[in-house]
C-alpha cells in the first residue's frame, strides 16, 4: 500500500473502505489537526482469577478545549472473574478524543461493559475497541452515543474460545448535523459460540448514522450462532442512515442471520394509540421510547438501565417538543 493514502497526519482517507462514510479529516478541520497530541492517559481494570466485583468500576474521560486526547483503557479479567465497567465520555469545547480500548476475557470470565458517550457537541470522538474472548466467557456490552459532532465507534471482537457468548448492543440518538459511525467486526474463530448485535438509532434534523456490522465465521467455528439487527427511525426528511450488514461464513453447520430496517415511525400503532385518547406527541414519545428501551433492557442492571432510559427520555422529549 502506498504511503500516500495515509495523507497528512497519517490519517486514513474516506477512499479507504473502512472509512467510507466517515470523513475524519473534514470533521477535525484545520484547527483540531494542528493541536498537539497529549501523552496517552491509561487506566487498567484488572480482576484476578475468580474475583467477583460487587461494585462497578467507573471510568470517566473528560475532554478539554483544544486538546487531542489519547485515552487508553485496558480491561483484563482472568479466568472466572466477574466485573462491571461503566465508562463516561464528557467534555467541553472543541477537542479530539481518540480512544483505544482493549478487553481480554479469560475462560469463564463475565464482563458487563456500559459506555455512555456524551461528548461536547463540538468534539470529535473516535475509538477502537478490541475484544478477545476465551472459552465460555460472557460479554454484555452496551453503548450509548449522544454527544459529539463526529463519532466513529469501531469494535473488533475475536471469539477464540468455544462456548463464549458476546452481546453488543447500542443506542444512537443523533440530531443537528451529528454523524455517528458504528463499525463492527465479529470474528468467530472457535466453535459453539454465540454473538448478538442489536443496535437502534433515532436520527433527527440532518443527522447521519452509519452501521456496518460484519460477522466472520472462520472455518473451524462450527455451530456458530450469530445474529445482527440494526433498526433506525428517522424523525425528519433530512436525516440519513447507511446500513451495511455482512455475513462472511467459511464453516458448515452454522446459524447466522441479520436484519435491518430504516424508516419513519409506523402509522398503524400511532393511530391505535391516538384512537385510545393519547395525543400524537404522547403516542410518538411512547412508541419511540419503547423502541430504544428494548435495547436498553439488555443491560442486566436495573439502576444503570434506568439512568440510561432517563437520558434517552430527556433527549426524545426535547426533539419531539420541537415538532
Amino acid at each position: 500500500m502506498s504511503l500516500r493514502v495515509l495523507d497528512r497526519n497519517a490519517l486514513p482517507t474516506p477512499k479507504q473502505e473502512q472509512w467510507k462514510y466517515t470523513n475524519l479529516q473534514k470533521a477535525l478541520g484545520e484547527d483540531l489537526l494542528k493541536v498537539r497530541p497529549q501523552a496517552p492517559e491509561q487506566i487498567l481494570v484488572h480482576k484476578l482469577a475468580g474475583e467477583v466485583s460487587s461494585e462497578p468500576d467507573m471510568v470517566v474521560w473528560k475532554g478539554e478545549n483544544g486538546i487531542h486526547h489519547q485515552p487508553r483503557l485496558k480491561i483484563l479479567l482472568e479466568d472466572k472473574a466477574q466485573a462491571t465497567v461503566i465508562e463516561h465520555h464528557q467534555g467541553a469545547g472543541s477537542y479530539w478524543k481518540n480512544m483505544g480500548t482493549e478487553i481480554l476475557l479469560g475462560a469463564g470470565a463475565q464482563l458487563n461493559y456500559i459506555r455512555i458517550q456524551n461528548e461536547s457537541i463540538d468534539a470529535v470522538h473516535t475509538d477502537m475497541v478490541h475484544i478477545d474472548m476465551n472459552r465460555d466467557a460472557r460479554l454484555n456490552f452496551f453503548s450509548l452515543n449522544l454527544g459529539g459532532k463526529l463519532m466513529r465507534h469501531d469494535v473488533h471482537t475475536v471469539i477464540n474460545g468455544s462456548g463464549a457468548q458476546c452481546q453488543l448492543n447500542g443506542v444512537n440518538l443523533l440530531r443537528g448535523s451529528q454523524h455517528c459511525d458504528t463499525t463492527i467486526l465479529m470474528e468467530h474463530v472457535a466453535p459453539n459460540s454465540v454473538s448478538r448485535q442489536f443496535y437502534r438509532s433515532i436520527l433527527d434534523d440532518s443527522a447521519h448514522g452509519v452501521f456496518q456490522g460484519k460477522v466472520h465465521v472462520h472455518k473451524e467455528a462450527k455451530k456458530t450462532d450469530g445474529y445482527q439487527l440494526a433498526n433506525t427511525i428517522l424523525l425528519s426528511q433530512g436525516a440519513r442512515m447507511n446500513t451495511k450488514p455482512e455475513l462472511e461464513i467459511y464453516a458448515d453447520d452454522v446459524k447466522c442471520s441479520h436484519g435491518t430496517t430504516t424508516g419513519a415511525l409506523d402509522e398503524e400503532p400511532l393511530f391505535y394509540l391516538r384512537s385510545r385518547g393519547l395525543s400524537e406527541a404522547q403516542a410518538r414519545l411512547l412508541l419511540i421510547q419503547a423502541f430504544v428501551d428494548e435495547v436498553i433492557d439488555k443491560i442486566n442492571d436495573e439502576t444503570q438501565s434506568g439512568q440510561i432510559k432517563d437520558l434517552a427520555e430527556k433527549w426524545l422529549k426535547t426533539q419531539l417538543e420541537q415538532k
Binding site: 398503524e268 400503532p269 393511530f271 391505535y272 394509540l273 385510545r276 411512547l286 412508541l287 421510547q289 419503547a290 423502541f291 428501551d293 428494548e294
Partner: peptide, 12 residues
C-alpha cells in the same frame, strides 16, 4: 388489533 412491541399493557 395492533401489536406494539416494548409498550407494556399496564403502561398503555
Amino acid at each position: 388489533p395492533v401489536e406494539i412491541p416494548g409498550v407494556n399493557m399496564n403502561v398503555f
